[in-house]
Each structure stands twice: as structure tokens, then as C-alpha cells.
């Protein structure tokens, strides 16, 4: 049943012109960032080659900046794709179909999250396939760190999807749901600015910031602390959405 709900979510998006317009805009921005970062890297490499034998590191000079750019794009666009996950069911009156069918609420939540995650993952990895293809065709990139970066993006998609689903369950308005997702994800991201200070607030920022737990993937490091943090976030957000949907029976 989870897979069926996921499939419906996936097909609904692939059949939605709006979703493709959002995807096209997203990929255009992604392409712009890729072109710019690539240009800066190649120019710096040429200049550096005049002075030093070693080439500019591909990981820190290109792959990590691309990873950071893609992460920011996800933060920007995911709320647009998640805002109608549950809010649309309320608005269009299809919620009774789900609530009166012999399916568990958690199956609905997991199915919707899975469908969205698959859609965005395909968008990011297929649409962004030009990046690894370019690196492989024109160079010899380190593949393991690239796989690590892909894992980081996948987890970030899962986190933002779960957060968006929770936000969508909190409000019947798509706009409010999007705003909730944006402000929460941006807040958790920007919490990282406090990490370099001293004191408990900085310590809390180091533990609670989404950026801090995601950025190491782009640098070729996978830390169990980060992985557990991200999965825990997904779990708690989905649990919250599940309980929220259950509570709709008590409104």
C-alpha cells in the first residue's frame, strides 16, 4: 500500500505541468550554478598552474562547492513541492477517501514521503547528471567522495521532504505550509553561524544545525553522528505528521 500511495504521488507530480515548470526553473538555476562554479574552478586552476605544480583540488575546489549550491537549491525549492502534500488533500476533499479506506495513517504518510523523495531524487540526480558526466568525460574525478556527496543530497531530500510533510499537515493552506517549511529549514541551516562562538548557544548550534550535519558529505567524510541525526530528524518529522493526520479525526 505504501508503494501504491508513493506511486500515485509520483505520477501526480509527473503529470502536473506546474511540477515540471518548477523542475525546469530549478534545473536552470542548477545549471547556472554549475556553469559558474566550473568556470571559476577552471580559471583558478589555470592561474594556479602558473605558480605551483599541483592542480587545484577537485574535491574542495569543485565538488564541494557544487554540493553546497545544490543543497541551497533544495532548501529553496523543496517547500514548493511539499506544500500541497496534505494540504491539497484537505482542500480538494480527497482526505475522506484516505481516511475511510482500509489503510493505516502511517502508510499514507510514508507513501507520500516516499513518492516525493523519489520524484525529487530523480530530478536532482537525472537532471544533475551533467555534473558527474562532465567530470568523468573531461577528467578523472574521485568517485568515492562523489558517492558520499550523492548520499548527503539524498538524506537532505529526505529531511526536507519529511519537514515539508509535517508542515503540510499543520496547515490547510499551501502557502502557510510552504512558509513554515522555508522558515524552519532556513532557521536550522543558518543556526550554523553561531557554531564558531563559545558558550552553550554555540554548542546547541553545533548539535542542532542542519548545515553542520550535511556539509561533511560534500567533503568526502561520512560521520555516523551526521547520519543518525538526519535519520532521526526524518523519523521524528514523519512521526509528527502521522500523529497530526491521526488527530484530524478528532477535529
Amino acid at each position: 500500500m505504501i508503494w501504491h500511495i508513493a506511486r500515485r504521488e509520483l505520477l501526480a507530480r509527473t503529470r502536473s505541468p506546474f511540477a515540471w515548470v518548477v523542475a525546469g526553473t530549478w534545473l536552470a538555476l542548477q545549471g547556472l550554478m554549475f556553469t559558474l562554479i566550473l568556470g571559476v574552478y577552471l580559471r583558478s586552476s589555470r592561474e594556479g598552474a602558473e605558480w605551483e605544480e599541483e592542480a587545484l583540488p577537485l574535491l574542495s575546489g569543485l565538488i564541494d562547492p557544487l554540493y553546497s549550491a545544490q543543497s541551497l537549491l533544495l532548501l529553496l525549492f523543496m517547500p514548493l513541492l511539499t506544500m500541497n502534500l496534505l494540504a491539497s488533500e484537505q482542500r480538494s476533499g480527497t482526505l475522506p477517501l484516505l481516511l475511510s479506506s482500509p489503510i493505516a495513517t502511517w502508510e499514507v504518510i510514508l507513501g507520500k514521503w516516499l513518492g516525493l523523495t523519489i520524484f525529487v531524487s530523480v530530478l536532482v540526480f537525472l537532471g544533475g547528471a551533467l555534473t558527474p558526466i562532465t567530470l568523468i568525460v573531461f577528467g578523472s574525478p574521485p568517485l568515492a567522495p562523489m558517492a558520499g556527496a550523492a548520499l548527503g543530497l539524498l538524506l537532505l531530500i529526505g529531511v526536507l521532504g519529511a519537514l515539508g510533510l509535517l508542515a503540510s499537515s499543520l496547515s490547510g493552506s499551501q502557502l502557510v505550509a510552504a512558509v513554515i517549511t522555508w522558515t524552519t529549514s532556513m532557521g536550522l541551516w543558518l543556526l550554523a553561524v553561531l557554531e564558531h562562538g563559545e558558550g552553550p548557544l554555540s554548542s546547541l548550534a553545533r548539535h542542532g544545525s542542519l548545515l553542520i550535519h550535511v556539509r561533511q558529505f560534500g567533503r568526502g567524510l561520512i560521520d555516523t553522528g551526521d547520519v543518525v541525526w538526519l535519520f532521526s530528524f526524518i523519523g521524528v518529522a514523519l512521526l509528527g505528521a502521522w500523529q497530526r493526520l491521526e488527530s484530524w479525526r478528532w477535529r
Partner: peptide, 20 residues
């Protein structure tokens, strides 16, 4: 879970030169 995972400090350095 997060606290335990952070204290265990289990990491995988994927960089060819082991920069981490």
C-alpha cells in the same frame, strides 16, 4: 541516539588522500 553516535566518532573518510 544522536548523542551516542556523536560520541562513538565512527567515520568513513572517502577522500583518496585521506584528508579527514
Amino acid at each position: 541516539s544522536v548523542a551516542l553516535a556523536e560520541r562513538s566518532q565512527q567515520r568513513w573518510d572517502l577522500t583518496p588522500q585521506g584528508s579527514h
